[in-house]
Simulated scan of single mutants.
Amino acid sequence: MSLADFFSPIPNREEYLNSQLGKVIVSYVDEFPDLYLDTKKPDLVIIGVEEDRASVGNNGCAKGPNEIRKHFYELYQGDYDIKITDLGNVKPGDTINDTYAAIRLIIEDLLKHDILPIIIGGGHDLTYAQYLAYEHLDQKVEVAVIDAKFDLDQANAEDSPLNSQTYLNKIILHQPDYLFNLSNVAFQTYLVSKESINMYDKLFFTMQRLGSISGKLDHAEPVLRAADMVSFDVTAIRASEAIGNANAVPNGLYGNEACQLARYAGMSDKCSSVGFYEFNPTFDPLGHTAMLVSQMIWCFVDGYYNRKQDTPLYPKSSYIIYRTPLENEEHEVVFVKSKKSDRWWMQVPYFGTRSVNERYYLVPCRYEDYQMAVNGEMPDLWWRTHQKLQ
């Protein structure tokens, strides 16, 4: 079975100006694009998913992909050459598990060919299928979810049905376990149970409240820089900015903040897939939410084409090493700063049986973490990462 068998073409496209994205994106309208020829291989592909059977309370989000495309294609490209292919929409399976299996196979194949998929439309439960695509890639995975709440079922963790409000259970409990870290960005405390927060603490996962990054959005940048895959729920954006969602809530990110987070994700050298979920055109009569999601995708693409390719440590001359001995500690904390981007990483050593090439884990951090270490305090990020490495 080829990739083409999973997709249906997009509707006939309009005429676009030379600098509009619709003019330069290769789209599946009549003939399925050839992805793997060197001369035609894209950097990014767009995958629409018309699936909402497990989207709780948001029936209609399956109609999202074509509405997002309509506005995305009208945007103008940045000052760089782009290689983007739109594969069309994944055909819904006879069962929702068939759809999950199709998404998993598609994304896994793209990842193996170093092509970054951008998934649009459908329910947030599709994040689980996105995650499954990494199972056979022989790596630990860091997942970043931008959402107003934690999609967990605390009462029935192991036996809960898979849907948009429980898929994190499936990711956390999945065997084999290749999840290194799970981050929830921009959550709202009153929408999350204390049991869920305690569980995240116990597992040393990362939590960033909406209030903690409001006006300080750069605090989320290292979290997104660390992620292999990013999943964005439109519910994270306040209803006044993104009404196109049946579960929209009064508070949340502003539209420009959502775009900035998308750009941070795109700029990460590590991010290899991204999904934008839960947009529902039924509740978006003026198309404002579709416009916003299309602009978020634009910002992700802009970030991608402005990647610095500076994940340490080669060549070493491009980095500055800072060593900060801590009082009453047996070891020092080592920081790495990129001369190219001024971004920071922290070395967290492995304390166990590892090969000579795996002496430490590099975790993205902020200058403030370095300042904390200089003042003699152990950064919380170092300690939490160390606990996961044991």
Results as ranks from 00 to 15, higher is better:
114 D>M: 09
87 L>R: 03
318 S>A: 15
17 L>Q: 13
163 N>L: 11
44 L>T: 07
26 V>S: 08
272 S>M: 06
221 E>K: 15
364 P>E: 05
169 N>S: 01
230 V>L: 02
332 E>Y: 08
181 N>I: 02
332 E>A: 15
151 D>N: 08
267 M>S: 10
102 A>W: 02
361 Y>K: 09
207 M>T: 15
16 Y>V: 10
13 R>E: 14
358 E>Q: 13
84 I>A: 06
215 G>W: 04
361 Y>E: 03
16 Y>Q: 10
358 E>C: 13
305 Y>M: 03
249 V>G: 01
15 E>C: 15
383 W>H: 04
29 V>W: 10
304 Y>I: 03
75 L>E: 11
100 Y>G: 01
324 T>W: 04
76 Y>K: 12
33 P>S: 14
15 E>G: 15
124 H>D: 14
203 L>H: 11
114 D>E: 13
189 T>S: 13
216 K>E: 13
257 E>T: 02
294 S>M: 05
184 N>C: 07
70 K>Q: 10
92 P>M: 11
364 P>F: 05
216 K>N: 12
83 K>I: 02
144 A>M: 13
106 I>G: 03
2 S>T: 09
27 S>M: 03
112 K>R: 15
7 F>C: 07
284 D>I: 01
265 A>I: 02
368 E>A: 14
336 V>H: 09
218 D>G: 00
9 P>I: 08
100 Y>R: 07
